[in-house]
Design a protein around this nucleic acid. Structure first.
Lengths: 216, 216
DNA sequence: TCCGAGCTCCTACTCAGGTACGAGGCGGCG
DNA sequence: CGCCGCCTCGTACCTGAGTAGGAGCTCGGA
């Protein structure tokens, strides 16, 4: 069973390059090309490829929107997104659009071939540098902020935290509690250390997320 | 510069297998083995490997905790987590613990070798099936925060505000949006001016109170 | 075609926030 | 009594945040 591939890129040189590269592989067949998003959708329906190599930046309709629409079809092909830069905001959008993979145009050819076979088999694959970014983002988000240390706080420290969560400056907190700003700083430092936070901004976030303060 | 590898797995057959496999490669040298987590930590400090192949299920101390402790060292090695099953909740924990990659024991050897070289170079790499899971989780969580209100703000400014409300620094926001820190500062200043706020702390408070972000 | 809005980026500056370290007073508890 | 946790305050220092002011880009509307 050969893998039928559709190449969607607005630069003909790029399309030609892929066609040549893929022609070497006995298990891969390029069934068509598209130079913009609309054409990609059209050919996706008519040619029935199993994998689409999709550039993001294209005229008429960009690769992201084309991806969304193609994946809305019955029995859609897998989409492998191509891009020139790895530092590209579109990575996230592409993944959310449902792309099965993301490779850079200057990744080594073997990697591209491996990626095509991988997504054709239903798995997903990202370029290493992209993977790194996704993991960083993933672990950053998926850290359940535990109210763990909240009960470690002393009465005074909780008081200070509540005022921080109200958006007040150290001077204002000092004023409210009738203590010096220095003392406030001391309390703040202790709160941050106990809760393992970096700055008061994160303290506010934690205060709301932990329910220590109500949104309303 | 050869890549120094430490193999940590409680099954000696597995260790022997890796040793044989890696012995074939001129650029990779196995500098030691460990059969449990504590031993892994010890040898990580004494042998100074650049990559550790770490099994998760090990006696004494499991691979996750060992990973956390090793990454707390000065100039720690990269950790490539090994597992038998891809359907493993440990994937998330491993990534959160700071592992640079995740491969299955029955992945093809070339893939393991590629993974070792990739993580040694500072990038990250996951097995395709693992990548698939991570992407699914990633896209599920990372919903764009809904607008509603704050109409004064431009799209970009709202985006920046949402990230501020997540507790991120300007540098982190720049990183997430692929723009310079300078530009982030510009956006922040505009947000504060438009909303008549003093600093980002008040912006967070407003974001939660206005329901722009959910507490949960 | 010109104009403005929006996004991007820069330098240079000020200041609040945070850390490190030290220190004194208070009250409870073994 | 002596120790210890808590609260208080200070000085010194460093960095991130925010402001000011200017500039170039693209795109869509007048």
């Amino acid at each position: 069973m050969t893998i039928k591939v559709l190449v969607a890129d607005d630069q003909s040189m790029v399309r030609a390059g892929f066609r040549m590269l893929l022609a070497q592989e006995p298990d891969i067949e390029v069934v068509g090309e598209a130079s913009n998003g609309l054409e990609a959708i059209d050919k996706a329906t008519r040619l029935g490829p199993s994998v689409i190599l999709m550039d993001i930046r294209m005229p008429e309709l960009d690769g992201l929107e084309a991806t969304r629409r193609i994946l809305a079809l019955d029995d859609p092909p897998r989409i492998l997104v191509l891009t020139t830069f790895d530092l590209d905001e579109y990575v996230y959008e592409a993944l959310q659009a449902g792309a099965s993979g993301f490779v850079l145009k200057d990744d080594p050819p073997e990697q591209l071939l491996a990626a095509i076979r991988t997504v054709a088999s239903g798995e997903a694959l990202l370029s290493p540098s992209v993977t790194k970014r996704v993991i960083r983002e993933f672990t950053r988000i998926r850290r359940p902020t535990s109210p763990e240390g909240l009960d470690e706080l002393t009465e005074r420290e909780r008081e200070v935290l509540a005022l921080i969560a109200d958006g007040r400056s150290n001077a204002e907190i000092a004023d409210a509690l009738f203590i010096s700003e220095t003392t406030v700083k001391t309390h703040v430092t202790h709160v941050l250390q106990k809760l393992d936070l970096r700055d008061r901004v994160q303290a506010v976030v934690l205060a709301y997320r932990s329910g220590l303060v109500e949104a309303d």
